[in-house]
């Protein structure tokens, strides 16, 4: 049982027009065409979407969880990037 392993693909589905594709899972397939067919059978049996993207898992570049603090810390410390940081007098109304 030592067959050559088939490449791993990640599957993304657009639930409906107007929404972006969202990662739903992965599967093994020999090429893009087979990956699309499989994704259709495995991940869209109940009107889950209107469009499928498949991409080989090894082509995805990803950030390392170890760098999480370094990469995403500024979103916490730079509170002036959020609208609630600024005070607008009530008389001015909604802004």
């Amino acid at each position: 049982m030592s067959e050559e392993p088939m490449p791993l693909y990640e599957v993304f589905i657009r639930p409906k027009a107007g929404l972006s594709h969202k990662h739903v899972g992965s599967l093994h397939a020999i090429d893009d065409t087979m990956a699309l067919h499989m994704a259709r059978d495995v991940y869209t049996r109940r009107a889950e979407g209107v469009s499928i993207w498949v991409v080989r898992s090894n082509l995805i570049a990803a950030s390392d969880p170890v760098d999480k603090d370094m990469l995403f810390e500024p979103s916490v410390s730079k509170i002036y990037r959020h609208p609630t940081f600024y005070e607008v007098p009530e008389e001015v109304g909604h802004m």
Binding site: E3, H28, D41
Partner: peptide
Amino acid sequence: IQDEAGHGLYLYSAAETLGVSRE
């Protein structure tokens, strides 16, 4: 029955993220 095959596939994929191969 086709759903059950799908369930098997979702779960094998989840297991593979833990560093074991499908084979």
